[in-house]
Design a protein around this nucleic acid. Structure first.
Lengths: 349, 349
DNA sequence: ACGACACCGGAGAGCGCTCTCCACCTCGTG
DNA sequence: CACGAGGTGGAGAGCGCTCTCCGGTGTCGT
């Protein structure tokens, strides 16, 4: 117990370790950072000293000189001022979409010792907060998931010259890296499958028109169906939430009672659509085949949902990878990665 | 355009602002932190200088001297080494439970300018990472959500003298603040309701026995039923996931075909149970009344689930409040907050 | 055997900020 | 008019770390 550390006050510092190991601060720093060769015996002495002092490097001090934080902002950006009484955070975190993105990001970042800082940007004020946060050097860059296409945050980030990677292509082109899915190709997969299984009267429930991904899924589906000789596809607009899928399905069946196949722009809405179909007494897939999108809620459905799988975790990991590359090399090219979806056939179609 | 800032290299510093404003660093710092009186005209000059330089304080430098980071760790702690191929992060973030906790935490922290850093602790290594992270001064404290009772992380935190607040009472008592629900009272609410609506053969699907909350819900339910003259309540164990609720319900009905009421220890399992009941041709609530717990997936069920509501967002906010109090005042007492649940009656019971 | 050269450890200058003194300057008051 | 109180701004010492120099030592080539 009789250590000779003065133990001035709080945590031990590099200085303390150096004293105990009988070397200089610089040497301890070298050992810790594994930079340059240090004689093995000295290394060992340092390690022992670290052990006995219980030293942990102070992140702020290190950050101050390295200009790196080992943190990235994971920001969900959207319109909080929108309709609906629920606060933005409730809606965001309740969405399995966010969970899967977070999972992918964490999966990639964690082994690399980088930590994601959760941020929400749903107003001009909070968007500025995000920019400030990065400019303060609180994080090395930002991973941005926008809930709608016209989000102003990406541009703010670009203008401030801050490293950032987006989920999905921005509505208007700006020089920023992003990772996106080939939505049209995914929708075509669904169209092909529906046609192949013999559906003759096909309709679709789309996402909100102001979301580019929703537009792409819709037009991609319509085009593919046109290619199969179905120039007209009835469509109703939903908002990606289960209730709108349910309502949309009811409307579709009412207006087109002979429908035998539906492409729903995401699984959440498909879940609602399935409920509606059951209430309406239509069997799935015998009477109506249903294909979802995302593969997010598919197994929780009855019957299990055939869906276009979006490999969100992989995409999120790719975002993280791009961001880190960008942080490491400021001259890193703006890069877009487009991921191909696959069709997962279960029972609903 | 012709400013007289030398603009040496990167971002403007306090020094730059001071020069532009014609005052000293200290004064600028005072203005920014609103400490002590500074003459109005000088204040204004400083603000203008901040404006023109586009100055943003450097967080690392500030942290270094204040010993505060403005960040807290939001850590999900559990057993990653457990069964199941899926990585820990997938399971965690897919759970609506986590989403609601995150939402509550963010809702409280955001207006206060504190940022949550997402961390996962699912092994000895990663638990140490969390401790190190805090000891490095990367965050001011930790909000810990454990997925099982015997989690060693809380004790590590206590031993290291780090500010932390837990979700739920730890399995073995340690001096640490936590926020928990009155699970037994919640279960009793369910029992009362089932009995009141005339159920005579009541069973329950519990959570895993190694989770204290699951034990409490089970024993609380059994006791309350005993109080109503039902000393024996058939019970099967689930794992809080939908599939186990479905399987559990099948088993229950098989072993006790005359069941007319079921208390399911969480909504996710209740969702599965509802599915099973439908497959078995039992009407809900006419043939079998079902009560869930949490109020997390209740409205997505068919029929909408009567459930014991756990105000997770409020509880999470309370955790954050406790943590901040603890960070601000190291002598802050260890405090436990127990929140009362309420019964939300919908259609399933 | 001597110079060249790699190698390795130490000294010290900051990184950008806060905060404690301290000097100054006004007032108010006796 | 002198003196002290109180309010205001500046100087400067760090916070704990990294990293560039530099000087000392060991090793090899010629």
């Amino acid at each position: 117990m009789s250590t000779d550390l003065p133990h001035t006050s709080g945590a031990p510092t590099l200085e303390d370790v150096a004293r105990v190991a009988g070397v200089s601060r610089a040497t301890v720093s070298r050992v810790i950072n594994g930079i340059r060769n240090v004689a093995p015996d000295i290394q060992e002495a340092v390690h022992r000293a670290i052990e006995t002092t219980g030293y942990v490097p102070n992140r702020a001090a290190r950050s101050l000189v390295t200009r790196r934080t080992g943190a990235v902002a994971l920001v969900v950006s959207g319109a909080g001022d929108a309709k609906g009484g629920e606060p933005f955070e409730s809606r965001v975190f309740a969405d399995p979409f966010f969970g899967r993105v977070a999972s992918g990001v964490v999966g990639y970042l964690r082994p690399r010792g980088i930590h994601p800082v959760l941020m929400l940007a749903d107003s001009a004020q909070t968007r500025d907060d995000v920019v400030s946060f990065l400019r303060q050097g609180s994080a090395d860059g930002a991973l941005v998931v926008s809930t709608h296409g016209e989000d102003p945050l990406p541009k703010l980030l670009v203008d401030a010259g801050l490293p950032a990677v987006l989920w999905a292509r921005p509505a208007r082109p700006i020089p920023i890296s992003y990772v996106d899915l080939a939505h049209r190709a995914g929708a075509a997969l669904a169209a092909d499958h529906l046609v192949a299984r013999g559906c003759r009267r096909v309709a679709t429930i789309s996402g909100p028109f102001d979301v580019p991904a929703a537009q792409d899924r819709l037009s991609g589906f319509q085009e593919a169906m046109a290619g199969h000789g179905h120039p007209y596809v009835p469509a109703v607009e939903g908002d990606f939430m289960p209730a709108s899928g349910e309502a949309g399905m009811h409307r579709l069946i009412k207006e087109h009672p002979d429908i035998d196949g539906v492409f729903v722009a995401n699984d959440l809405m498909a879940q609602g659509a399935l409920l509606a179909l059951r209430d309406l007494g239509r069997r799935v897939p015998e009477d109506v085949a249903v294909i979802g999108f995302d593969d997010s809620a598919a197994v929780a459905c009855r019957p299990p949902l055939t869906t276009v799988r979006q490999p969100m975790e992989d995409m999120a990991a790719e975002m993280a990878r791009l961001l880190l590359a960008q942080v490491a090399d400021p001259d890193f090219q703006v890069t877009s990665v487009i991921v191909q979806p696959t069709l997962v056939v279960r029972e609903s179609a």
